[in-house]
Every structure is written in structure tokens, then in C-alpha cells.
Simulated assay, not measured.
Amino acid sequence: MNNGTHASVETALRHYKEGLGVFTQKLPSVAERFNAFTEACFAEGALSKKEKQLIALGISLTTQDEYCTIYHAKGCLDEGASEQEILEACAVAAAFGGGAAMSQAVTLVQECLRELRTTH
């Protein structure tokens, strides 16, 4: 996905899940604790699950983490975020992350919306 060669969004999600599976087999106690921690962080609370996914998408864009951008774009859709909400979260990320975040918002996030919206 780097260097201008974007794999499909579904392929990237599959690679992430496969890698996580291998990691979990090799370090199960670490993976289990990490998963429990992130599940607690993304649980419904004062912020909704959708709001938390939108925040995570913005952070992913700002830190230039393509796998997390794809994962959280999907999470936003899974939690019922509209395209407008997702794009506004991208705009806020661009306000902090500048052109680097904006470039991912107008390419990778748009690609995620195109590919993943058809499955929701």
C-alpha cells in the first residue's frame, strides 16, 4: 500500500488479521492483554463507539498508519458513521496533521468508503 501501490482494502484487512493471528499464536498472553485493553478503550461509555472510531480514524490519519486508517474507516462504517461524519473527522485530522493527513483522507479513506460501503 505504500509507495503508490495500494492493495485493495479487503486485502489489507486480511493481511492485518492474518498477521495478528500469527502474533497471537507466538505471544498469546501479550495479544490477549492488548486485545482486552483495546476492547475496553473502544467500549461504549461517555463517548459512543462511533465517536471513538471517528477519533481513532483521525489519529490514524495524523500518524500516517495506513492499516489503522483502513481498520478504523471500517470501524466507523460498522458503527453507523455517515460519509459526512467520516469526512469531517478527516478534516479535523488534516487540521492537525497537515498535507500528509489530508493526502490519506482524499485517497485511502475515499477508497475505503467506496470498497467497504458496498458491504454495509
Rank of each mutant, 00 (worst) to 15 (best):
M1S: 15
M1H: 15
N3C: 07
H6E: 13
A12I: 15
A12Y: 09
R14W: 02
H15K: 15
Y16A: 12
Y16P: 03
E18D: 11
G19P: 01
L20F: 15
G21R: 10
G21C: 05
G21D: 10
F23A: 05
K26V: 15
K26I: 14
K26Q: 11
L27V: 13
P28T: 09
A31I: 07
R33F: 00
F34N: 07
F34A: 10
F34Q: 10
F37S: 10
F37I: 08
A40I: 09
E44V: 10
A46E: 02
L47Y: 14
K49R: 08
K49W: 02
K52F: 10
L54K: 07
L54A: 06
L57D: 06
L57T: 03
I59F: 03
I59N: 00
T62G: 06
D65Q: 14
D65M: 13
D65W: 13
D65C: 15
E66F: 13
C68F: 15
T69Q: 09
I70P: 07
H72I: 04
A73M: 02
A73H: 06
A73D: 09
K74V: 02
G75R: 05
A81V: 01
A81N: 03
S82K: 04
S82G: 03
Q84S: 09
I86E: 02
E88D: 10
C90P: 00
A91G: 14
A95M: 15
F96I: 11
G97L: 08
G98K: 01
G99Y: 08
G99F: 06
A100M: 12
A100H: 14
A101F: 00
A101I: 01
S103R: 12
A105L: 00
A105K: 03
T107M: 05
T107L: 03
V109K: 05
Q110L: 11
E111P: 04
R114Y: 13
E115L: 02
E115M: 02
E115H: 01
L116R: 00
L116D: 04
T118V: 15
T118P: 07
T118Y: 04
H120Q: 13
H120F: 14
